[in-house]
Structures are given as structure tokens and as C-alpha cells.
Design a protein around this nucleic acid. Structure first.
Length: 858
RNA sequence: GCGAGAGUGGCGGAAUUGGUAGACGCGCUGGACUUAGGAUCCAGUGGCCUAAAGCUGUGGGGGUUCGAGUCCCCCCUCUCGCACCA
């Protein structure tokens, strides 16, 4: 050990030691409790950003803590290696996506190792490796056999920048989730889907059985699945002989349905208007609506518009002839793409009816009020008694709900049904850098799955991405020209690849057995390790990745590969790392070096400090963790990201704060160095010192308690670190008269120092191992059991009791802890300062809070 | 609009069950050591007041309570989610 704290040397020394000892390798051991700790694996973008550092540091602390608690901890890491940025880099820099990806992986792996994270690198996997995605292709085929994967021609979301289709979950506010400036357009094309809707109900139900998940993530998932109960009602047309099905949650109002609206995409639209005089006009309206992007179309600000189709149908209950409209607010992919409109009891329908002069019919009368069609200014959406509703007149609408549904069923006019907002997961991507979909198209046999023994369908690596960003696969004869597995005739391969979210939906299972080659998952290993006990990652995956993973887990369970239904028992969603960014009115956001003394270095405009941007999303002005590691070392960086705020909160980056953490580690180092002769000695030290320095002894055990609880119960590392800082401050105070300390006192100090080092070791493992060695111990702290609290040490002989008059603090007294309520009260009332405040006023009441406080009411 | 969360010093944040508001750290101020310091150490640091005493103070207003950052009601602001879902 050197007298000066030089992080680089310490960190490389211990990282080498850990690696040489294979400290992080882990094996199944049924005699021990397993603990699966997982952080969301990164996309190998080039280098790690502060978001990664924060995420992985949080995970590493928990992993190390659980290890010290005696758990058999699996803590793996890998690479979400397929995806678009690799292709973009290929276009921009002429590097093959594979080379770019693997280069990035090795660079980032070096950085993660430099951070000292305790990963079992033997389990590392990259999803772009055929030995990984071959199993995904197998899953696809087995899903295809069971109807869980299917192909359909439909309206899909298209991002022009990505040159590909996006799943509904990947569209945010009508824009691409990767390109917030790119509006998504709707295209009609053939696409492969995974039938996630089959599990909608189960996933919804299980939201109630995930107490270890944040409430808001569960709420988001529930909303996304969007289950609603209602009825399917068939409206027969007058001519031609067609039936229009609508979905409604308000079948109680069916007698009030005075018109019907179709989505512009509805297949009936073209049929109905063919040859009518209005055809042109209607088509123009449809065309105009479909050109609008979905976000605009469904926005609150967009005017509700419609047009008469020229046709009528019958209200199945009243047998009235009612007009059919085409309306911009009706969504084709929700319900049946058609709605019955009840203007009296639905505000949107009301406005639409008033706008186009359509009839109204009141079917619910509220209590003590009579609605009149002519005087209504808004729809009545509350409860009431049914009127104008034939046999149901006089019944409460809420009670008639069920009866009307039954009636519809008995008259074959409809039935009760449940509708979900969730759509099937579109996984086709017209991209190169992804896992090929193992399907062949034969002119004779049609769609033919690749036989399982012919897997993997390997993505050819000798292709160039096309300059416009398109996939080269459809143009590569050696890939797409093949033979039909069924008839042997010439056939064409599917050239779409799978959404990369498919890879990330099961990687955590594969970590249990990354090299297994007899199947996707080694049953014994995966049943030992799964489910993940603690998953940690960003809130941005609240729906996307987390929903897909829950779906996939169920599929793999039904296919017999897994025993669990839920992949992640506990979920911690960490906040974003943000930084206030200076921006120039002309050049936009600036890098730190572009803003000098409040002006833009390029144009001299006054710089505005304002927007706080997420570091993981913006390229500009990010704090590069590598710079910090180079300057302060990994331990300081680890410590600061934890100390700055609790994990679930967003972290506003502040460069100055890092120095504080560095200084603290420095102080800790010097504390050990300066007294190394007195402090050295194996641990635990003999318990003879308990009568010496009782305050420090107590503080030591209070700290153990606090740190353990903070990590165990709530992952609040910031307060855990603060508690150790307090202990270190206390030790330094005691050491002020270092020369007069007796041997017994040194024992207490030794224990205090040892505890500070042990308690901090999950956070700053390198420096702690070094200090541990200096303190005369062998080995690494990861193998030292987590300390337990000596309850006896927590007992205090004296306590400070706060004295209040009318709730205001007026004095403090120190009393023996053994005193009873009455005695404390007496002592309190005898306190001169308190007496001064009571003076001549009458004491009305005295409240004593045991060992804490006395409040005198006058 | 609906739902959830939040609002505490100059800043990040503590206060876990109603009981000493501001732990811990940053920054700042003063001092020590020093050729020097943006290194280190010591002291101070919510506001008002020269200081002490005192008063005041957790977005604003009201309430419950001996006692409220914490509980209840109303309002304001911010963040997130949902938002024509039939």
C-alpha cells in the first residue's frame, strides 16, 4: 500500500486478482439459495454512457451484497447485438455491421471490466451469434406450428428513417421510438406476427401477482393491454345484404343508436360507395384521413369529421333505418373498426350528431330530471332508468346491461364479448442486421417452414448494406434462392428479419446455459436459476421489453422449455441520468467546449441554459464516464452515481459532486494509512474493548444496521453511504487524540474501521479490498460474510431528551436511558431553561414520548 | 381531461411508524499550512438581526393534533403515464 491513494494501480491490481481467482464464476448448487441478479443488457453502441454506469453499479452493489449474505449469486452480462445503428454505421463509415458490432462489444467489455463489475463473463452472449439466434428460429417454428406465429397482410407502422416496419409498442406519439423527429406512416403490407393477444388475459391477471414491480409499470402494462367488457352487436344492412358488427361497452344504450360510423380503412367502405354519386367525394375524404398520421388523427385537437356513405342499416332493436357514416375518429384496429353512435349518451357522438344534423333519441333518464332531445347541450353519460327501450323500459341501465346482452344473444343479434387494446406483435423487419425468419416460399407448396434440423438459417455476413439503408437480403441470390423443403422445387427465402426485441425476450433464460447445444435451454440449469430475482433497468422499457419478455416466458413455458410463468420477480426501474444543456439559438445544443463564457463559440450568440436532457438519448454534451474513470478511478465513479440520489429518481449530473466522493475515499485511505500499525490485525478482533469508547462502538453497530436496512429494504445506497461517512467522521474525531489512546480503545477503533471497509465494499470494491489487506487480512471482501448487528452494542446508557413548550424546542437534557416516564418528566420540569419558558403560566398538560421528548403545554 | 408521483437551503438530497427539519455531500465564507494553490486540514454556513437572545422557516391557504415536511380538505406548479378505445 502506498501512502497516497492512486486508484488506477489499486483497481488494476484487484481486478487481476479477482479474475485470477475466478471470483465471479458461479455454478448451480442446490444446497444453497440462488439469487439471480440481472441488469438490462446493453446495445453495443460503441462506449458506455452514464446511464449504463448507473444501472450496472446499482446491480453490482446488490450482487456483491447478496454474495456476502451467502447467496449463490448469478450475475451475467451480454450484448443486445442486432439492430439498426450497426447498419447506419455501415452506411456512414463503410464498416460491416458485424465488425462494427463486435468491435464495440470488445471496447465496451473493456470498459465494464474497468468498472470492476462482478460479472461471470463465462456466461457472456451476443444475440447476433448464430449459436444464440438459432434457438430463436426454433421457437419461431414451434410457435408457427401452434398458430402463435402467423403472417397477415395488414396496416402497419412504417418509419422512413429506419426503412422498416415498427411494432405498435415502438411508436411513441405517432413517431418512431428511435427517431423522435420521424413521423410514422401507415403502410399496407405482409408481416409476421406473434400472437401476444392470446396471453393478454393472463398477463393482465398476473399484474396483480407482481408485488415486486413498481406500481406505475404495472399500470402502464394494464393500460396497454386495455381490457374492456362489452358486447358485439350485428347491424343488418338494408342493401346490399351485409351485416356490420360493432363493439360497444354500452349495450344498454343500443336503443339510442341513431347512426353508425365506420373507420375509413373498413373493407365495407369501398363496397358501399361503389357506383354511388358520392363515390368521388367519399373517396377523397377517406384518402385525406388515411394520409394523416395516426397521432394527428387521434389527437384531441383534431376536428371530428365524417361523411355519409350513402347507405343505411337497421338498428337491430328498434328496426329503425339509420345512416352509415365514415368517420375519422373511428380506429380500424380497435374493436371491429365500426361503432354504433348514441349521441344522447356519448359526448363525442353528441357533437358529431349536432355537426351533421343527425337524429337523437334519449334512452336513459337520470333521476329527478327529464332529458329532452331539443334542449340537450351535452350527452348524458351517467346512470338512470331506461326509456324508449322496448321491453327494458323502467329498468336501471346498469342492471339491464347483462339482460340486453343475453337478449342480443337469444335473438342472434350479438353476444357478450371482451375486447383488448393490445394488438399482436408485428416482428417483421425489412432490415439486414437481424435474425432471419426461418420460412421458405414455394410456388407449389406456399409458405413452408424451414425444417428444424436445417437450422440455423444463417445471416450471410459477406453482404453490404444498401446505400439507402435497405436490406441487401432480397437481392442476394445465394441467400434468397433455395429449394422447397417439402417438394424440392425452387423456392424463395423469407428476407425479413426479426424485431430485435425478440432476442431480448429470452436472453435471461439463456444465461443459465449459454453454451448448451442440445436445445435452447438446459432444463436443469434453467429451472435452478429462473426466475430472475431482481431485474434492474430503465423505465423506458416499462412496456416494450418487459411486456414482450412476459409474453415470451409464457410461450416458452407452454412449449415446455421453462417452468416459470413470470420472468422477473422484482423490478427496479432506475431514473435517467440527465444534464442541463447549454444551447445556442442558431446551433442548437452545444458540447461543453462550444460554449465559452455564456456565448456560443461559433457565432457568439448568447447561450441559454435550460433543457435537461437524458444522457442516454442525446449525443451532445454527455459526460463520458471514461474521462471520469481516467481521472478519479472506477470506485469514485461508482460511489458518486449511487450517492447523488436514490436509484429510482432521475439524476441531474453535477461534475463537482464527483470530487466529493473522491475526497472521501482519499480520507478513508489516509485514515487507514496513518494508523496502519495500530489498526492491523486479523478480524474479527477479540471482544474485550466493549467498555472502551462506547459511543464509537454504538455508532459502528448503528451503521451496520442502517446500511443493511437501506440496501435490503429499499436500495437507498445514498443514505447507506452517508451513514458510513458519518462513521468515518466519528472515527476521525476519536483519532484526534491518537497518542493518548489505550490498547482497548484501539480495538474498538479497529472494529469501526474494519466495518466501514466491509460495509462500503459492495460500492467501492477495489479500495476496500486494498484497505482490507492493509488491515492485515487475507483474501477479498466478497468472501467475507456480511456483518451482523450486535444488539447489545446498540443499547445506550444516556439519551438526549428534547424539551418542548407548546411544541417548540426550548431545551435539551441528557438523561440515563433507564429512567421511566415519570422521572424524565420530573427532570424536565426541573430544567432551568424550560422553567424560564413556562414562567408563571399554568401547565395544562405534559406529554412524554419515551426516551425522546417532553412537551409541556401551557 | 383522467390517473400516478413530486414540490424541503445556493445545489444533489436526508428526515423509513406524526416527535430535535436540513443527516451526508457539493458550493460558499473565514482561518491554518504554504513560494503558490483549483492540494490538504480546521471552523462556520436556511432566513431575519452586528451578535446574543429571539423570531421565522419544508409550493400557497385552511384543518386535525400536545406536536405536522409527514395525516385531511382546497388551490398552484412540475414530471410521468393514459387520453376520441366505442
Amino acid at each position: 500500500m502506498e501512502s497516497r491513494y492512486e486508484p488506477e494501480g489499486v483497481e488494476s491490481k484487484w481486478q487481476m486478482r479477482w479474475q485470477a481467482d475466478g471470483l465471479f464464476k458461479v455454478k448451480e448448487d442446490i444446497s444453497r439459495d440462488k439469487y439471480y441478479l440481472l441488469e438490462m443488457f446493453p446495445y453495443p453502441s460503441g462506449k458506455i454512457h452514464m446511464g449504463h454506469v448507473r444501472n450496472y453499479t446499482i446491480g453490482d452493489v446488490v450482487a456483491r451484497y447478496k454474495r456476502m449474505q451467502g447467496k449463490n449469486v448469478i450475475h451475467p452480462m451480454g450484448w443486445d447485438a442486432f439492430g439498426l445503428p450497426a447498419e447506419n454505421a455501415a452506411i456512414e463509415h463503410g464498416i460491416h455491421p458485424a465488425k462494427w458490432t463486435y468491435d464495440n462489444i470488445s471496447a465496451m467489455k473493456r470498459q465494464l471490466k474497468r468498472m470492476g463489475f462482478s460479472y461471470d463473463w463465462d456466461r457472456e452472449l451476443a444475440t447476433c451469434d448464430p449459436s444464440y439466434y438459432r434457438w430463436e428460429q426454433l421457437f419461431f417454428l414451434e410457435m408457427y406450428e401452434r398458430g402463435l406465429a402467423y403472417k397477415k397482410r395488414t396496416h402497419v407502422n412504417w418509419c422512413d428513417k429506419c426503412q422498416t416496419v415498427l411494432a405498435n409498442e415502438q411508436v411513441e406519439d405517432g413517431r418512431c421510438w428511435r427517431h423522435s423527429d420521424q413521423e410514422v406512416t401507415i403502410k399496407e403490407m405482409d408481416s409476421w406476427f406473434l400472437r401476444i393477444t392470446r396471453y393478454a388475459d393472463e398477463m393482465l391477471e398476473f399484474c396483480e401477482r407482481l408485488p415486486g414491480w413498481p406500481e406505475r409499470v404495472l399500470t402502464m402494462q394494464k393500460n396497454w393491454i386495455g381490457k374492456s367488457y362489452g358486447a358485439l352487436i350485428r347491424f343488418p344492412m338494408v342493401e346490399p345484404d351485409e351485416v356490420i358488427e360493432v363493439f360497444t361497452t354500452r349495450q344498454d344504450t343500443v336503443f339510442g343508436a341513431t347512426f353508425l360510423c365506420l373507420a375509413p380503412e373498413h373493407p365495407l367502405v369501398t363496397k358501399l360507395i361503389k357506383g354511388l354519386p358520392e363515390e368521388r367525394e367519399v373517396l377523397a375524404f377517406v384518402d385525406r384521413t388515411l394520409k394523416m398520421d395516426r397521432f394527428m388523427r387521434t389527437s384531441d385537437f383534431t376536428e371530428k369529421e365524417g361523411i355519409f356513405s350513402g347507405s343505411y342499416c337497421l338498428n337491430p332493436m328498434t328496426r329503425d333505418k339509420i345512416p352509415i357514416y365514415i368517420a375519422n375518429f373511428v380506429l380500424f384496429d380497435y374493436g371491429t373498426g365500426a361503432i354504433m353512435a348514441v349521441p344522447t349518451h356519448d359526448q363525442r357522438d353528441f357533437e358529431f350528431a349536432r355537426k351533421y344534423g343527425l337524429p337523437l333519441r334519449v334512452v336513459i333518464q337520470p333521476e329527478g330530471q327529464v332529458l329532452d332531445v331539443d334542449n340537450m347541450t351535452e350527452a348524458y353519460v351517467g346512470e338512470g332508468v331506461l326509456v324508449n327501450s322496448g321491453p327494458f323500459d323502467g329498468k336501471r341501465n346498469t342492471e339491464a346491461m347483462e339482460e340486453i346482452a343475453d337478449y342480443l344473444k337469444s335473438e342472434v343479434l350479438g353476444e357478450k364479448t371482451v375486447n383488448y387494446r393490445l394488438r399482436d406483435w408485428g416482428i417483421s423487419r425489412q432490415r439486414y442486421w437481424g435474425a432471419p425468419i426461418p420460412i421458405v416460399y414455394c410456388d407449389k407448396c406456399g409458405t413452408v417452414p424451414v425444417p428444424k434440423d436445417k437450422l440455423p438459417v444463417v445471416l450471410p455476413l459477406d453482404l453490404q448494406v444498401r446505400p439507402n439503408g435497405g436490406s441487401p437480403l432480397p437481392f442476394e441470390p445465394s441467400f434468397c434462392m433455395t429449394y422447397c423443403p417439402r417438394c424440392g422445387g425452387p423456392a424463395r427465402r423469407e428476407t425479413d428479419t426479426m424485431d430485435t426485441f425478440v432476442e431480448s425476450s429470452w436472453y435471461f433464460d439463456r444465461y443459465a446455459c449459454p453454451d448448451y447445444d442440445k436445445g435452447p435451454l438446459d432444463p436443469e440449469k434453467v429451472s435452478y436459476w429462473m426466475p430472475v430475482d431482481q431485474y434492474i433497468g430503465g423505465i423506458e422499457h416499462a412496456i416494450l421489453h418487459l411486456l414482450y419478455s412476459r409474453f415470451f416466458t409464457r410461450v416458452l413455458s407452454d412449449l415446455g422449455y421453462l417452468k416459470v410463468r413470470e420472468p422477473f420477480t422484482n423490478l427496479l426501474t432506475q431514473g435517467m441520468v440527465c444534464k442541463e444543456i447549454e444551447s445556442c439559438p442558431i446551433h442548437g445544443y452545444l458540447y461543453p467546449h462550444e460554449a465559452r463564457e455564456g456565448t456560443c463559440s461559433r457565432c457568439g450568440s448568447k447561450v441559454v441554459v435550460g433543457a435537461s436532457l437524458k444522457m442516454s438519448k442525446s449525443k451532445k454534451n454527455v459526460v463520458d464516464p471514461q474521462d471520469l474513470i481516467d481521472r478519479y478511478g472506477a470506485d469514485t465513479v461508482r460511489m458518486f452515481c449511487l450517492f447523488a440520489s436514490p436509484p429510482e429518481r432521475d439524476l441531474e449530473w453535477n461534475d463537482k459532486g464527483v470530487e466529493g466522493s473522491f475526497r472521501f475515499l482519499h480520507r478513508l485511505w489516509r485514515l487507514v494509512w496513518d494508523s496502519r500499525d495500530k489498526l492491523a490485525g486479523t478480524f474479527p478482533c477479540e471482544k474485550d474493548g466493549s467498555e472502551y469508547l462506547p459511543a464509537l462502538h454504538r455508532k459502528t453497530h448503528q451503521t451496520i444496521k442502517k446500511v443493511t436496512e437501506d440496501i435490503e429494504n429499499r436500495f437507498h445506497f445514498n443514505t447507506a453511504i452517508a451513514a458510513v461517512m458519518e462513521l468515518v467522521n466519528e472515527i476521525n474525531r476519536v483519532l484526534e487524540d491518537k497518542d493518548s489512546l489505550r490498547a482497548g480503545e484501539w480495538l474498538v477503533i479497529r472494529e469501526a474501521v474494519a466495518m466501514a471497509v466491509i460495509l462500503l465494499s459492495p460500492v467501492v470494491p477495489h479500495i476496500c479490498d486494498e484497505l482490507w489487506e492493509t488491515l492485515g487480512n487475507d483474501g477479498c471482501l466478497l468472501s467475507v460474510p456480511w456483518p451482523s448487528v450486535d444488539e447489545a452494542a446498540l443499547k445506550e446508557e444516556k439519551r438526549v431528551v428534547v424539551l418542548q413548550v407548546n411544541g417548540k424546542v426550548r431545551s435539551r437534557i441528557e438523561v440515563p436511558a433507564s429512567l421511566g416516564e415519570e422521572e424524565i418528566k420530573e427532570l424536565a420540569l426541573a430544567d432551568p431553561r424550560l422553567r424560564q419558558f413556562i414562567a408563571d403560566k399554568t401547565v395544562k398538560k405534559t406529554v412524554v414520548v419515551q426516551k425522546k421528548l417532553v412537551n409541556v403545554v401551557v
